[in-house]
């Protein structure tokens, strides 16, 4: 059983990450994965955030309204999107040059599991039905900051923050921040540190739902929801 209904949890996670970007005092370039990460764009405020899509666009605008979709103008989740003023297009090699070359300030990705040392598993559940990796391995190794957006537990209530990933990994020690509906963690010197806790959660509850060991920040805050 989950403490917060899934739909509400996803919005809360997206809003928390959006706030981090909205608070940026300088121009930042971000890349958003599919799922909760895409929702982050809906809550970003201020004019300092520019979204890159790995299929070849910088300055991605909101999802195209009904009837305005152009099937040749899509984001990496294949959603029809719109242009922003000053947007530009480029081929996939330039796009991944931006990503691998360290020109993207932050990427937000979903995940199945994150380990206590920041390993991320997000590309495949080995059930024989999936055969695809996407750009996640390039993104986690190349973006300056890797932010994982995921619910705290699986639908069955199993922890997703684990000692060691049991699923095939996307990258080793690449996570910088994990935002769930119950907590915010950052990785500092290879260790997971609890930074914020949701108003309805206690430290005991977080410990019971988190398999990975973590430190508690001396300045632990209540997550703004």
């Amino acid at each position: 059983m989950n403490i917060i209904p899934e739909a509400e949890a996803k919005i809360r996670i997206a809003k928390r990450i959006a706030r981090k970007f909205s608070e940026s005092s300088k121009k930042i370039i971000i890349n958003l994965g599919v799922g909760i990460p895409t929702m982050v764009a809906d809550y970003i405020e201020g004019g300092n955030v520019c979204v890159q899509a790995e299929n070849g666009m910088l300055g991605v605008g909101p999802v195209a309204p009904e009837g305005m979709a152009d099937r040749q103008l899509i984001n990496a989740g294949r959603q029809p999107v719109t242009e922003t003023r000053g947007c530009c297009y480029f081929d996939s090699s330039i796009s991944f040059g931006m990503i691998r070359g360290g020109h993207i300030d932050a990427t937000v990705i979903g995940a199945f599991e994150v380990s206590k040392t920041g390993d991320i598993a997000n590309w495949v559940i080995p059930n024989g039905k999936q055969l695809g990796v996407g750009g996640a391995m390039d993104l986690v190794s190349g973006a300056k900051e890797v932010i994982v957006a995921m619910t705290h537990t699986t639908k069955d209530g199993k922890p997703k923050l684990v000692k060691n990933c049991s699923l095939p990994v996307t990258g080793i020690g690449e996570a910088d921040m994990v935002v769930t509906e119950l907590a915010v963690f950052c990785f500092e010197d290879g260790e997971m540190v609890l930074k914020e806790i949701a108003p309805e959660a206690s430290l005991d509850l977080i410990r019971s739902l988190t398999e990975a060991e973590f430190k508690v920040d001396a300045n632990l805050k209540t997550m703004e929801v």
Partner: peptide
């Protein structure tokens, strides 16, 4: 990986037989 895929194609096109990338290590 998508970036490796496109770079491998680019490399073929520009006369580079192989390259090193951080993506997929581990």
């Amino acid at each position: 990986p998508q970036g490796t895929f496109v770079e491998a194609i680019r490399a073929a096109g520009v006369g580079i037989p192989a390259f090193y990338t951080p993506a997929s290590v581990g």
